[in-house]
Write a protein that binds this DNA or RNA. Structure first.
Lengths: 146, 146
DNA sequence: TTAAATGCAAAGAATTTGCATAACA
DNA sequence: TGTTATGCAAATTCTTTGCATTTAA
């Protein structure tokens, strides 16, 4: 589990500086339910620290993403949501059985959509995604007009 | 399979009018590889018909989406891609076995991402997505700090 | 003829960037 | 002290909208 301090440490190790704004972004993100927009984050922070600008929030989130400890997801239209942490998903080739590991945040969009639309909690890792790997693509069938 | 003429017919049935711009949007979309942005569509059309405006393309795509015969997907950042046709995906509740049908375009984003990132062709319908339905959500465990 | 669609320009929403100033290390 | 980060404003990108004009039915 990533704690706020561990996240700040990772920034420090990268050579970044720890500022009030960054401390606030990190702790607010950790305190949030899991998926927040940059604007929501900024609004929460600005209740106590109105000087922290939205662009700073975006820049801090960007730095954290480059560290791989934060991700963002496009949920339909509107702004992206940001979240902490990483997990995995498996892709299995139906032809050769090859297994490809995929970071869970590639499924965040689907997860959010299914939850929003159906109240369905997607359990990734509990299933594999089937298909064809790059080495064994489907042969495309051309449909002749009848 | 939906043909360009069938799509125009559906617009007509809805009480819409068939214009040159709409004919062009429909036929260009059908002729496209499958996933095109509004701008790409407009650019292609404008090679022959420079008077067709991007906003008209957006409006036509919008009408077709409301008919349910066109969908658009957010693929990462950048503009959305538009495509024709509909399929289904099944969600299965691990607790009660309930099955929920989901239109395939909810998985288009995932499909595009997996293909772009891994060259993996996702075969939806060949697998079910497991999880918890709205009636049987997971109880959230609160982690006490150690 | 008349309601619907178009072209254009301008507005909107989300995010990024340039730059002078502030502040961490 | 020397970068790095910030705040602000302005620019960008994608999409939508208002409105006068054109066009299909």
């Amino acid at each position: 589990m990533t704690t706020a301090n561990e996240m700040l440490d990772q920034l420090r190790e990268k050579g970044s500086r720890i500022t009030t704004a960054r401390r606030l972004v990190v702790s607010t993100l950790m305190g949030a339910s899991g998926h927040v927009t940059a604007e929501e984050l900024a609004a929460t922070i600005q209740e106590q620290h109105p000087e922290v600008h939205l662009s700073t929030v975006y820049r801090t989130l960007d730095s954290l993403e480059k560290l791989g400890i934060v991700g963002h997801t496009h949920v339909g239209h509107g702004p992206s949501v940001y979240h902490v942490g990483v997990t995995h998903q498996h892709l299995v080739c139906e032809e050769c059985g090859a297994v490809i590991d995929v970071p869970a945040d590639m499924l965040e969009g689907l997860r959010d959509t299914l939850h929003a639309q159906y109240g369905f909690e997607l359990h990734i890792g509990h299933f594999a995604l089937l298909g064809r790997c790059a080495l064994h693509p489907h042969v495309q069938t051309v449909r002749i007009s009848p």
